[in-house]
Amino acid sequence: MFASCADPSLLSGLDWLACYLTSGKHLDFYRSFGTVLILLAVTAPVALAFGFAGALAARSQLGLVSILGRGYMAMVRGVPDIVFFLFFVIALDQGIEWLTHQVRCPDWTEPIRNGLEFRVCPQAKVPPGAAPQSVHSLYGFGLAVVTFAIVFGAFAANVLLGAMNAVPRAQIETALAYGMSERQATRRVLIPQMWIYALPGLSNLWLILIKATPLLFLLGVRDVVYWARELGGSKTSAYEYPHPDWRLYYFLGLLVFYLLMTRISELVLARISARLSRGQATMAGEAMRKAGATA
C-alpha cells in the first residue's frame, strides 16, 4: 500500500506493523467484515420469507401442504446446522445444475452420476466454466445465503406460526363474519396484528444469526474466521511478513466484533419493540400507557 513497504524485511517496529496491517491480505480481511454484514442484511429478509411461507403452509387447510410446512420445520430444526451445512451446499449446487441440465441439454445421453462423479453438460454448468472468479464468488455467496435462509427460515416459521396463533381467534372470526374470505382475513387482519407477538422470537433469532456467521467459512465463503485463521497462523520466511502463531490476537479481535454487533442489535431491537408496543393491548403497551398517565 505504501511505497516504503516494498521490502518488509528491512522494516522493524511500528513501520513493520503499519505495513503488515495494510498488506493486501489484511485489506481482504477488513473487507470480509463487509461480507459478513452483507450476508446478514441479505439473509434476514430471505429467511423471513422462507419462514413466512413455512408458517402459512403449516396453517394451510390442505393436508399435504400443511404436512410439508410442518415437515420442513421439524426436519431442519432437529439437525445441528453445522451438519446441515456440510453436505447441503454441495447438494444444492448439484440440484441446480441438474435442473439446468434438464432444460438445456435434453439430448445428453451420458449418465450424470457416474460413481461419485457428478457431470452435467458444459452448457449447464452454473456459473459457466469461463466466468470470471468474481462470478464464482458471487454464486458461492448466493448459495450460502440460500442455505442460511433455509435453516433460519425453519426457525422463523416456528416463531411466526406461534405469533399467528397468538392473534385472538375472535378477530378472525369477526373478519369472516363481515364477509371477508379466508385469504382476506389472513392478509388484512392476521398478518398486521401478529408482528408484535413475533418480535421477541425474531429478535432472538437475529442475535443467533449473528453468531452463526462464523460457519460461513464451511460454506466456502472467505469470511472473517477464514482470514483470522489464515493471517494468524505462524508464518515462515516463505512469506513477506514472517511471524509466530498470532491467532489468539485475531480471535480476540473477532470476539470484540461479535460483542459489539450483539450490543448494537440489542439497543436497536429494544427501540423497535418499544415503538411496536405503543398503543397495543399487551402488558408492555399497558405499562407505557400507565407511565404516560402518571407523568
Binding site: 498488506s23 493486501g24 491480505k25 485489506l27 481482504d28 466454466g129 469461463a130 516463505a238
Partner: peptide, 24 residues
C-alpha cells in the same frame, strides 16, 4: 477454447501452496 481450467488448491500448505501477503 471457451473453457478455462479451474485449478483447485488449499492455500494453507507452504511452500507447496499458500496465500501470499497480496492475498493471492
Amino acid at each position: 477454447a471457451q473453457q478455462t481450467v479451474r485449478m483447485g488448491t488449499e492455500g494453507a500448505y507452504p511452500p507447496y501452496n499458500f496465500i501470499n501477503d497480496q492475498g493471492e
